[in-house]
Design a binder for these strands. Structure first.
Lengths: 179, 179
DNA sequence: GAGTGCATGTAAGAGGTTACATGATTTA
DNA sequence: TAAATCATGTAACCTCTTACATGCACTC
């Protein structure tokens, strides 16, 4: 359901073709709501069928230039401000944490170390994204930057938590040694 | 794909029926990987078909007592230690952040305030969970507690981030006032 | 014997992924 | 003219959600 609004929102920020949207999407929203090319094109057709967006021009190679309609903008605002219950988080990596007891403590410890490293590299990736992008003064950049800030804080938190877990496992091993 | 391992993992920790699993699931893993009753029963049948679990007993009301097989335990360990690329995060609430520029600044600010409040109440819920549960000394409790710690840190981070966003929006409003 | 809880299952449909299919246009 | 890029679409399959269906066993 959310991809529908990602597409609608991108078009509200700026008109363009599915192909245009796809590239803008990859750089921004795909970080919080990944989607494939197939899916995006499908949503655009559905949105057009529903009258929320419209084709304003057909260019070379069958390129369709889309634009948001009034109805589409209203629907977008409704979705953003609606306090709909969002689907809860789905994290396979945390699911594994619940099951680390099925592994030898040393192996579980390795999992935690890897978790920390993964978070650190994600942090580095986002820092690079922040530093390499030319941030403008418009709303889209302001809020995009805010979403990125979330990612940075999240990655930093995850790294610290994983380091804490490594220590906790070490302590647990030393209390009841396996050898 | 992950629910399969959630079910397998729960059975690895302790044998039981689908109904038993469902209750244990709600208290633990459902926080990081929600699933419905239908789905869980379906997975149990698939796991049994694949020889990863087996029915050891049939009790009253057609109750099936399941147990992990050797193959199942091996598959579980493989999954936990496999560095498979996990699906990336999907957060409609952050998707909305990208689109807050489509709203008046005052309305966007309200969204951020609500975000902070939501995080605060989630934090309170998890703190209550932590304080009301009788934590044992076994592995399942140790790692369950670790996963809960993640949730606590995450909720705290989200609240602080949202508060930061409120301040940033306030600053932005004061710099370029709308009235 | 009525109500609650135990216990499992089916079916329809939406959302999402992967792979494939097709072809025009620009650039080297 | 070959390669890269632009540009859109279809089909099969899996996951997940929602709703419905069924019935036994225990307790009051």
């Amino acid at each position: 359901m959310s991809l529908r609004f990602a597409a609608l929102g991108l078009l509200a920020q700026h008109p363009g073709s599915g192909y245009d949207l796809l590239r803008r999407f990859e750089l921004s929203m795909a970080n919080v709501w990944p989607a494939t090319q197939s899916q995006l094109y499908g949503e655009l057709n559905k949105l057009a069928d529903g009258g929320l967006i419209e084709v304003t021009d057909i260019g070379p190679r069958g390129r369709k230039e889309y634009r948001v309609t009034e109805a589409g903008r209203a629907e977008l605002v409704r979705w953003i401000t609606a306090p709909e219950a969002d689907p809860p988080m789905r994290r396979p990596d945390l699911l594994r944490v619940f099951l680390l007891g099925e592994l030898p403590a040393e192996t579980a410890r390795t999992y935690a170390v890897d978790f920390a490293e993964h978070a650190a590299s994600e942090l580095a990736r986002l820092q690079h994204l922040r530093d390499s992008f030319e941030w403008g003064a418009d709303d889209a950049d302001f809020y995009g930057r805010a979403a990125l800030e979330f990612g940075l804080r999240d990655a930093a938190m995850e790294e610290r938590w994983a380091q804490w877990l490594v220590s906790a496992i070490d302590e647990r091993i030393s209390i009841s040694p396996s050898a």
